[in-house]
Design a binder for these strands. Sequence first.
DNA 1: GTGAATGCAAACTCTTTGCATGACT
DNA 2: AGTCATGCAAAGAGTTTGCATTCAC
Lengths: 151, 151
Amino acid sequence: MDITTATCTWTEHTLRTLARAGYRSSGARAEVIDGLAELGCSVTAREIADLLREKGSGVGLASIYRALDLLDRLSLVQRFEVGEGVARYEPAHPGGEHHHHIVCGTCGKVEGFEDEGLEQAIHRLSDRVSFAVAAHDVTLHGECPGCRGAD
Amino acid sequence: MDITTATCTWTEHTLRTLARAGYRSSGARAEVIDGLAELGCSVTAREIADLLREKGSGVGLASIYRALDLLDRLSLVQRFEVGEGVARYEPAHPGGEHHHHIVCGTCGKVEGFEDEGLEQAIHRLSDRVSFAVAAHDVTLHGECPGCRGAD
DNA sequence: GTGAATGCAAACTCTTTGCATGACT
DNA sequence: AGTCATGCAAAGAGTTTGCATTCAC
């Protein structure tokens, strides 16, 4: 997965989509988008705030939440939780390809993974349930290589 | 799945496990366990509180959270979230058999489902990742039959 | 009697909202 | 000018914690 080119494309796509929908994308919103592109996978609002503050930006937390909410409503980011009671966000790729997350129960590290077999199983299963399935989240819990070694 | 006998067994198992671990299980804790057994799948702390209050119980919210936390640490309940920022709990069956959840994006209804193909896919996948996988959560998002019809 | 368990209220964290100010078209 | 966007501060919701009291053993 080439994060660099992917997120670069995502940034452009996002700015273009916002503009097309009539939203202004300067100021705080643009900084949040840049921050998301830079941080990439599985970031919290606080992490974005910390990054922007480090860079000397005066963007407020409220604007970050507002931007994330807007991006989520436009399907430009994916919002999810891994069981900490904190919302996490990451750039959503327009093609629909996506990954899931695995969380280290010891250090809290979150990593992404993709698995075609899993996607297929969920697809097959979706036909069998009474709900109309629109999306799915999978979270694996375990211990990361670093923490396994440190036991 | 026969909820009645399953939760009855679960209640006994839970009380026995607590006693064996040296915890007292009278008062608030027992009421929370009863409430969980009665409500069954995917309940919030508030739902337990409401049920107990209805029954005239004076159990406080803090005791409910403390009980749920203890049961979770002893693996007697499963704790999870479906993306609302609220923790949900349900009796955990000792055998390890478990189900996952599907959430209606319109009315918020949560239902359980089981799928062997999904479990197998996750099992196969677990061998391929660098983490030591200990558990997994799957959440499907969609629209329930009732809300589909009401569109 | 002693230590665990409980209830209440306060504290805390994450997130949302109200409102006045500032920026873009 | 008019509207949208922002920052700050306050409000909300869910959850946790401190402490005095109560209860089980």
